[in-house]
């Protein structure tokens, strides 16, 4: 029997399998270090959409994600002259920065604003989306918000950001075994939460 390998979803962005491989961002970083503004565009083309999606999923707000991305790329411009090859990939470092900035925002936000009062991030600017799709997306978001932070981050990095297990473990500063444990618990928890919330309308299997 032929086994299908599903095409990557819209969330999926191809990344190399190992941090040990050569980093495709290195030549671009060298140009940025030399003051080449055009090289900044190249780096943005490669990473902005994906990092913005990560921040939006973390924060539930496109405006907050905008600010996080601006801050992250200012740090990237500063980091470029000091970046050394041979360690983690630059994209891994960028994910780490966005994750940390998003965590900071979540912390300060929790001190002031209840989560229920946050704007709906997913489709604020796309009214053409069907109401059903909006509802499902919101339901996933709400379920993910109920997961412990580390589990949610592991799932975001591996499922939506397309990082390999090694890269995601590096971003979260944990071993691959620990990452797998986080992922498995996240998926189990999410399944429980969603099955509780979706049986009513979607005909969930089992």
């Amino acid at each position: 029997m032929a086994i299908t390998v599903r095409e990557p979803s819209s969330h999926w962005m191809p990344v190399a399998a190992s941090a040990a491989e050569s980093d495709p961002d290195l030549p671009v970083l060298q140009r940025i270090a030399g003051g080449d503004a055009a090289a900044c565009s190249v780096l943005l083309d490669r990473h902005l959409a994906r990092l913005h999606a990560l921040a939006t999923r973390m924060l539930g707000s496109a405006e907050d994600a905008d600010e996080v991305c601006q801050d992250a790329f200012v740090r990237a411009w500063r980091q470029a002259p000091h970046w050394k090859s041979g360690g983690a990939r630059f994209s891994t470092w960028l994910h780490q920065v966005v994750l940390n900035l998003s965590r900071d925002r979540l912390r300060s936000r929790r001190a002031t604003v209840p989560l229920e009062q946050l704007p709906e991030g997913a489709h604020e600017d796309t009214p053409e989306h069907a109401q059903g799709q909006r509802d499902r997306s919101l339901m996933i978001r709400r379920a993910m918000e109920q997961l412990p932070a580390r589990q949610r981050e592991a799932l975001l990095l591996c499922h939506f950001q397309g990082l390999t297990n090694i890269e995601a473990a590096a971003v979260l500063a944990v071993s691959v075994d620990a990452l797998e444990s986080l992922l498995a618990r996240a998926r189990r928890g999410l399944r429980d939460l969603l099955q509780g919330g979706t049986e009513a309308y979607s005909g969930v299997p089992q």
Partner: peptide, 26 residues
């Protein structure tokens, strides 16, 4: 089943002006 559910968690793409804003920071 769970993957199909997760794939429905969509977010709006970054607005076009964001790129220009970030480039102004260089």
């Amino acid at each position: 089943w769970l993957d199909a559910q997760l794939d429905q968690f969509e977010v709006a793409p970054a607005r076009a002006q964001l790129r220009a804003c970030i480039l102004r920071g260089f």
